[in-house]
Design a binder for these strands. Structure first.
Lengths: 137, 137
DNA sequence: GAGGATTTGCAAACGATTTGCAACGGCCAA
DNA sequence: TTGGCCGTTGCAAATCGTTTGCAAATCCTC
């Protein structure tokens, strides 16, 4: 078994959640692919027609709540999901304005910077995470 | 008339688009407010019950295509719109994880950096714009 | 393997956004 | 200023992604 999946399974168990076939398969799909997927794409790749689309939605919600996956909203109507930073490393996305293709970049231009300070003002705001998407061609 | 609106009107005309009441009013709302608004919020603030919600959607699409407004997707189901950079200046958003409040920050931690270079790789990708949202409390 | 709690499949409900179409209203030419 | 053309609007219905209620199926503990 892929180590990430094992870690996640332990996490679920610790959170009192069952390790079920739909959840396992959704994770299998996410670990196998190198870019964010739409829910319907994940569902299509499950390879098990018995699994219902709403179970995929529910699994993704759970994973998102447990910080196992990250949710991306990139402009077309549908959300995309990918494994969270802890399982895939911190990265950002290049989104092509023309064809819509999405690619990962692992280098982060904000790395090591104190964002709170860099932004000045808003002292009351504690930055917990950031989301940076680059649009271009 | 507010100068930004005049500039935008000229832009529309140049693009062969009519300057109509719904379009003008949508812009009036957007220039009057200092943070991104949901479509339905914009519609509610128009002050003219004759204007239909779909006209607001269509106006916003047009404005988006002409780079007059910027579209933000921040996680709850609805898109938010604000005037584009050229009319409000470059800025980013602080999104509160707890209450959902959104605030602008005008300081940009990426300012003056060569993003293409900072990201390495992807030489074929020309960055045209970026979107940075900070989540925290 | 049995029992109880958690999940699932299914189908219907939902909210945001889009669309077809006839009526309307900007805008240019006369 | 007026007439008319073509883009734009209002309306209502369709669409899309996502969520939900509920009974049946599955998972986990003992």
């Amino acid at each position: 078994m892929i180590p990430e999946i094992d870690r996640i399974r332990t996490l679920l168990t610790a959170a009192g959640c069952a390790w079920t076939r739909p959840r396992a398969q959704v994770l299998a799909v996410l670990t196998a692919v190198a870019h964010p997927l739409r829910v319907e794409e994940i569902h299509r790749r499950l390879g098990d027609p018995r699994i219902n689309l709403s179970s995929v939605y529910r699994a993704l919600h759970l994973f998102h709540r447990l910080n196992v996956v990250r949710r991306l909203l990139l402009g077309d109507g549908a959300a995309r999901y990918e494994l969270a930073e802890a399982y895939r490393g911190h990265h950002h996305h290049l989104v092509c304005d023309a064809c819509g293709r999405i690619e990962d970049v692992s280098r982060c231009p904000l790395e090591g910077r104190d964002l709170g300070a860099a932004l000045g003002a808003a002292a009351a705001f504690a930055v917990r995470s950031h989301s940076l998407e680059l649009f271009g061609l």
